[in-house]
Design a binder for these strands. Structure first.
Lengths: 364, 364
DNA sequence: CTGAAAGCGCTAACAG
DNA sequence: CTGTTAGCGCTTTCAG
């Protein structure tokens, strides 16, 4: 219990007898109950409620009425056991604290809720151990499918392979792993990196550095590649002193910016692997009274919500988050009734979208 | 399918025979399978795996080994049907797009995951219809408890009453409803409003306005009351022209600020019902070249993540979000094994914490 | 059109 | 120490 809290407890009293009676109320109605009520069999009730053609309208009505009267609700657990389908999709995200993942979840729900599916959520906090635990949970819960984004700390993929082995739909989003041979929805991170860099070039920046992300994570490596190739394609200067290899955090952004400024790279712009990284970088620039975007152009990646509120507003690459969720969900729907889910695998690659704001507008 | 996307499909081929064989692999092992393997009964296997005292260590080992060999995993669905416990908690939040709710979910998981519970998540998007559907889903899924925050558009509470009637633990957080007589974890919004206002007073502001939230939502009303009482206690000016009744959005903040400035209130500070409202208000102030905090002090409510990144940084009231989730989860744990969940109800009221930043520091 | 019976996978008395 | 049996709530052949 937290110190900063107060507790109020209020009590109401029951006579023993009244209590017993009340307990009965708690038990929810089953098919049996309504069968007993009408002196028919459980199977008749089941058929009536499911609008089975071989049931008279008369009994159907009767049954439905008493079902309503008894406040009957189908027990999905029993249904699941019977049918082998849970109508639940496991969604595993690294962190619920990022807008990005929230949006994806939103996109998924938009598609699957109307179809009667629900989400079992699991947060990995970027840890592989949690990831393993999460998948275990999903499998035991008999989820009909899994939509997941790989944690940053994940180094092997056996737990994911297990899902595949069981022929359960696995759809990775954002952070995928090609070697797994599963379905995936990603954005073209290489292109995103390329676009971001090219944007800065077009804005007239001459020496563009990069605060990179963890290089064992494919998408961050891809953004780096895109950056490098864009520079090359436009015959711009490049050398290793223009790149800082960071860890994607705000602090890492600050650290990276400081290092780059202290080095002899003489940058006039920087492409940050994530918006949060850009945020850290901008703090350092402000401290050092380096004007953004005049003296230093900045571009981020992710289109986090804060980007349009900070000053200057942050130019960034949008990842189509809602879309990503929707596509993942649609992929699931497509797969769900197939015999062999992995006979063929499908990859949806969304295109990054540049969101131009103040932090990169040298000319204005 | 979105236009901004590409699809790749790869296919691998199976012989019919190989495929049949493969399908066998997909079926997961049950108690029956391992019983057959060892020529013992299902119940023996069950007991062995559950470390029942009346089982020889020999068979226990045997069973456990073949269980591992067959990659056995307990089927939680069957367990649920048997025991009546699902070990799932339904969590209903208005929106996954707000940091606030993400943090609460985080707090809940922190407590209940180690205890073997999992979260079934539902987003209401602030709509009552979705809320009703969500509760329905939870009840059908046989959740062991429900942790929820009431949607803004909710006007009656019958669906919540149903949960109570079934004697299922219902814990409301943040936005609660006292008349329901259920368990709740909230912060003291009245006090939060009072603190915010008093803070501005102490900073030397003389005429403090309020951009209020939807007044049919208790917590927003409470914040307003706190504001008013603080003014009164300090014998500060107050009249209705100093208050704008808004709808909690960014736009509503802008609209409110404009109205207040156009009126004849002559404010030198404003308490905004939410950080997002404050954001909207600040945009208007910037447009009109009114200096924050010199000419106009601003304070928000919620401690959203962007508050420390905008400029000037935003003074706000923190709601102890992680804590709120943890307390809700702890309450659930406390309740779960009681006979009559609502014989007494418990309310945890967390204390708001002021987060002082630049937007209210007139003197510095 | 309705009933009887089996079974999804698991646990837990009760017998032996 | 192990087996037999019943049953959680539901659907679904198969008979009648």
């Amino acid at each position: 219990m937290n110190k900063n809290s107060t507790i109020f407890v209020t009590t109401k009293f029951f006579s023993k007898k009244l209590f017993q009676f009340a307990m009965l109320q708690f038990k929810k109605a089953t098919l049996k109950d309504i069968a007993k009520e009408l002196n028919i069999t459980v199977s008749a009730v089941s058929k009536a409620l499911n609008n089975h053609p071989a049931m008279s309208d008369g009994t159907k009505d009767m049954v439905k009425q008493t079902a309503a009267k008894l406040n009957y609700q189908q027990n999905k657990i029993a249904l699941s056991l019977k049918t082998g389908k849970s109508h639940i999709i496991g969604v595993m995200i690294p962190s619920a604290e990022k807008l990005f993942f929230g949006s994806v979840v939103h996109g998924i729900e938009k598609i699957i809720n109307p179809l009667g599916y629900n989400l079992l959520l699991f947060q990995t906090n970027e840890s592989m151990d949690y990831e393993i635990k999460g998948i275990d949970t999903f499998l035991q819960a008999n989820v009909d499918g899994i939509i997941a984004s790989i944690a940053k700390e994940t180094t092997h993929y056996e737990h994911y392979a297990e899902i595949k082995k069981r022929n359960i739909p696995l759809i990775l989003f954002d952070r995928a792993e090609e070697s797994l041979g599963v379905h995936a929805v990603t954005i073209d991170d290489y292109k995103g990196g390329y676009m971001a860099t090219e944007h800065l070039i077009k804005k007239g920046y001459k020496k563009i550095g990069h605060i990179a992300g963890l290089q064992h994570v494919q998408i961050f490596k891809d953004r780096y590649r895109g950056y490098k190739d864009a520079l090359e394609a436009h015959k711009m200067a490049f050398n290793e002193s223009m790149v800082y290899y960071g860890k994607n955090s705000i602090e890492s952004g600050s650290e990276g910016m400081s290092q780059l400024l202290n080095g002899n790279a003489e940058l006039d712009a920087v492409f940050c692997v994530e918006d949060f990284t850009a945020l850290g970088a901008m703090q350092v620039l402000k401290e050092r009274k380096i004007k953004i975007p005049k003296q230093m152009g900045v571009i981020g990646f992710a289109n986090e919500s804060f980007g349009k509120y900070i000053s200057p507003t942050l130019t960034t690459i949008d990842q189509q988050t809602i879309n990503m969720g929707e596509e993942a969900a649609k992929l699931f729907i497509k797969l769900i009734d197939k015999d062999d889910i992995y006979k063929s695998t499908e990859s949806v690659v969304l295109q990054p979208i540049i969101v131009e704001r103040e932090s990169s507008s040298r000319k204005s």
